[in-house]
Amino acid sequence: MTMVLAICVAVTFGVSIYLMLGRELKGIAMGVFLLGHAANLSIIAMSGSPILHTHGAEASRAPATLEPISEHLDEQRHPLMTGVNIKQPPVLEHHEPMTDPLATIVDPLPQALILTAIVISFGVMAFLLTLLVVTSRRTHTLAIAELAQEPAPEPDGGPAQA
């Protein structure tokens, strides 16, 4: 699963860079947008694959847990992926503190970080769109080459000519 995600990250990241290298602000805005997706996907990859391997390399690394995984095996079917055992969403089922919660649920921290990131990118997106509108109203163009020719403001407040 990590491999799939890595490929997705590679593609979205590449496309967003391609868009951002373009010559038009709208494309650049879309690139920034897509970049958010790429970053979020790469962060969620850090939580590790949700699929529980009962055999192979992953199983040997998984620590012995007190939680009876096997009892819940039936419930641990993903609605889409019926064929595999899979970790649960990070919602606790009971109130007792668990010794190793991450054996049964996925790592919640990357999810929290991404949630923050999504909401922030909401603000960023709106801000970016506003900038687009304001820029196009003031300069009547969104092409980078034309915008770059706008004169830069001169700094003020030089030394006194004594």
Partner: peptide
Amino acid sequence: SDTAGNLFEYWPGILLGLIVCLTAVLIP
């Protein structure tokens, strides 16, 4: 370790990944 399991068993993930890649590439 990732490919150790049955590749076909988590087809939804692979399918969604494909869609992500495809739509992203189609944008430009």
